[in-house]
């Protein structure tokens, strides 16, 4: 099915979402075309496999379809979309790994990482596959914070609000994620 050209409409995401709420199917097509790739990559990298990414990707968009009547443009559409994705991810982690989703893990991981590798070393030695493998070794909270920053280019406040964590906790998660990825990539090289 051909994707709509998401740059053909000058309307922003919030306006398109309101149009979709009022029944305009073309607005949904535009929104889907604009956000499908980044959301899909985020979910695949977050879950670590394509099948789970597909499942969550479909669940998130079906949720957008079903909850369109209650949408209010109090926040950016991308934030609302990622909040939905975050809730699905938390459920998925609880279902798949019986993972305890809290910030207590951050304190334990903070003691491990003490000496991040230089940027040049990482850039020269890692390949894409190695980075993907290393992402899978991260705790879900750190991986999510890292992906939200790199994939969706969200700021600290947005990530904190989206994940429901404190700003300092988010900062620690991103810092630990970066340091662990450096260590992992260096070890694989």
């Amino acid at each position: 099915m051909p994707m709509a050209d998401h740059d053909s409409d000058p309307r922003d995401d919030e306006t398109l979402m309101q149009a979709w709420r009022d029944g305009e199917l073309a607005a949904f097509r535009l929104l889907y075309a604009r956000h499908r790739l980044r959301l899909y990559r985020f979910l695949v990298h977050e879950t670590g496999n394509n099948a789970a990414g597909d499942e969550l990707f479909q669940e998130v968009w079906l949720s957008v379809i079903q909850q369109r009547a209650g949408y209010q443009p109090w926040a950016r559409f991308s934030t609302w979309l990622l909040e939905t994705a975050h809730r699905r991810l938390v459920d998925w982690h609880r279902r798949e790994h019986r993972h305890r989703w809290n910030s207590d893990l951050d304190a334990a991981h903070e003691l491990v990482d003490q000496c991040p590798l230089p940027d040049a070393t990482v850039a020269n030695r890692q390949s894409g596959q190695q980075l993907r493998d290393c992402l899978r070794t991260l705790p879900p909270e750190q991986r999510e914070a890292f992906l939200l920053k790199e994939e969706h280019e969200l700021g600290l406040a947005e990530i904190a609000r989206l994940t429901g964590a404190a700003a300092e906790t988010v900062k620690s998660r991103v810092r630990y994620a970066i340091s662990k990825l450096r260590s992992c990539m260096e070890a694989l090289a």
Binding site: D119, A123, G128, R132, E150, I178, L181, R182
Partner: peptide, 16 residues
């Protein structure tokens, strides 16, 4: 981490 960011963006783009 700029190098890590570049590395991440260089990943093969998974598409639905």
């Amino acid at each position: 981490d700029e190098a890590l960011s570049r590395q991440y963006r260089a990943l093969a783009e998974e598409t639905p």
